[in-house]
Design a protein around this nucleic acid. Sequence first.
RNA 1: GGUCCAGUAGCUCAGUUGGAUAGAGCAACAGCCUUCUAAGCUGUAGGUCCCAGGUUCGAAUCCUGGCUGGAUCACCA
Length: 597
Amino acid sequence: MDIELQIKQAVILAIREFYNHEANEKSIQIQETRKDFEGDFTLVVFPFLKISKKPLEATANELGDYLQKNITNVVDFNVIKGFLNLSISKTYWLDFLNKNYGKENYGIVAENKNPEKVMVEFSSPNTNKPLHLGHIRNILLGDSVSRILAANGKKVYKVNLVNDRGIHICKSMLAWQKWGNGNTPKNTGEKGDKLVGDYYIRFDREYKKQVEELVASGTDEKLAKDKAPLLIEAREMLLKWEAGDEGIRQLWSTMNGWVYAGFDVSYKKMGITFDKIYYESDTYKLGKKLVLDGLEKSALIKKDDGSVWADLSKQGLDEKILLRADGTSVYMTQDVGTAHQRFSEFDIDKHIYVVGNEQNYHFQVLKLVLKKLGFEWAEAIYHLSYGMVELPSGKMKSREGTVVDADDLVDEMLHAAREISKEQGKLENFSEVEVEKILETISLGALKFFILKVDPKKSMTFIPEDSIDFNGNTGPFVQYSYARIQSVFRKANEKNVVIPKKLSPDCEFNTKELQLLKTNYAFGDIVKEAGENLSPALIANYVYELAREYNQFYHELPILVEEKKDKRELRLFLSEMTGRTIKSAMRLLGIDVPPAM
RNA sequence: GGUCCAGUAGCUCAGUUGGAUAGAGCAACAGCCUUCUAAGCUGUAGGUCCCAGGUUCGAAUCCUGGCUGGAUCACCA
């Protein structure tokens, strides 16, 4: 049984016996002992003083005594202030090692027989411009969260909802019609999403020019923005699209096709896949029927002009429109529809939306509307909200060209990895194919780790130089530690050192070995907790700690030199455990594992 | 103005849900390559945890009030 649980139960018994009192679980706090003190686990004694009616020292000693006598694995204790530090026997830790040694995926739960089904929606790009750094944060979070959920035994569906319709697409289409000269990705060699994005920018430029001209000729600015000829044309195009105009539809699907080809390249570069891709052009009419049903049940209200609203004033919000006066639907209506469709189609138990925090209000409302409509799964939707990615120079603005393009960024990371490796002569003994593979692994690992280590809900600053740095709290450092561990085994093998299947019971630890062991011990809990909090950052920061412990440890303790046999075996054991834990953690983050360099 | 989120070292970030003397990396300084990979390790320096109250054995963490920054408050998606 888990030692922490064992201690907890013993404490309950002790309190019942000594003080004739039923302690509630929550008052019993057991934590890992801080490094500077002796012991493995610490019981906080303060909460029991009122019950024991005895001085601090006496209470702590009494409890410590009881635990030592009643739990075989508690071999010693000491009391410092209100903290009871318990030392756990070496046998317990050895058992832990021996038990988990054979597990290839230590800390990861296999898929249950009857798993909870979770859908994760992420990426969700518009088809009028290429992916940028903001999308990268979204994509990496979505991918990583999916992996963490899967590692907790859930069945995960990764889905993408492409926003392929609307006025913004029409702007790109119109600009291409006017100034495109028949350019295609094929005849220009340009990536499709970039090509289309260029025309979106072109539209904006020409549109601004028109607005300026109108203002110069005396038109009110607000009016000018609304009445610029280009915008009117784009609106007309959208109407035609909605009416199913064949020519427009043709152009639309051609240009979107270019964009998808471009996106595929970007996703592939990042190693991202989806189980299903939804298109808004297929789903934008969904939800209308559900809203009308809700109206019938009087869950919603109809105004004089015929528009339909949800009244959320009781929940502290205002009213939200769901159907316009002309009966057409809005974004919210659509989301109600797609959610309903997904819950019935996939029979999912939970739906996670990875969407930026600018939509916090939207998802708050969505949940309330679903509840109003009477769907019992309304509580099962979760908005994984994340903050913006800013640059040292400030915010990214796509129209002002200050965005960091996703492909460019990945390429730059690769370039930096190449330069640094060349400079240090790290990859001299590898073939060209191997070198390319390693560089890709490292540069992508650096990017992913840099993004994921930050708490999702916080906005973050992306510093290009720091992201490319391979020292310190970075992906390459974690990969490096793993590679070193692999190297230990390779060298051991060369020297015919056999790694035993089981450690002998008289194997001794020193403090550093114990530290590393305890860090490994925590991994399973971290995975579980990260799943509950939907936080890859937790894993990232943890695995960095582990890699650091490892590096400090092995720096001082050569393994393969002459020393007592069981000591050597213990270290090989620890290496392998640590290696597996690091590898598992990297996989949860979506970071590739490098070979032993 | 209403609502939500954030504020921790010069910079970028952790801080295990209220515990012991608040931690890393970067940048600065001083060291460590015949040992397994120096993409590393050791040390020095660096803190009003935004401010003020409150809750209690105990607060970076919880509550209240302020300050600063961000998001949002569309018949856009």
